[in-house]
């Protein structure tokens, strides 16, 4: 008789599940930090466009300031890579 109600966990199944969880964690790390960077850049970007509209000379400086929140998503990327490899 085969019991279809319970499945035995084999070593392969556990490993596959762990890999799946790691991939999910990596995805979350990239996705959430991406959203966070977007929100942060929205505020800085609006101010940057406003400042540039008034004074074109500040374009280089405000461009630099706008991309600083990218560090958030870079840290997410590092976490994701560490999880996967």
């Amino acid at each position: 008789m085969v019991d279809f109600g319970t499945a035995e966990l084999t070593l392969e199944m556990v490993q596959a599940s762990q890999l799946g969880m790691r991939a999910l964690g990596a995805g979350l790390a990239i996705g959430l930090t991406g959203i966070a960077a977007g929100v942060a850049e929205m505020a800085i970007g609006s101010a940057a466009v406003g400042a540039t509209a008034e004074n074109r000379d500040v374009f280089g400086l405000v461009l630099l300031l706008t991309v600083i929140p990218e560090t958030i998503v870079i840290s997410g990327l590092v976490v994701a890579l560490l999880l996967l490899f």
Binding site: M42, S46, A47, E54
Partner: peptide, 21 residues
Amino acid sequence: NYKFYANYIYACTRMRVRRSR
């Protein structure tokens, strides 16, 4: 809300830059 928030920041920054001039 975010759209409004961004617009507010844009307008207020322009005013601050103008004030500095």
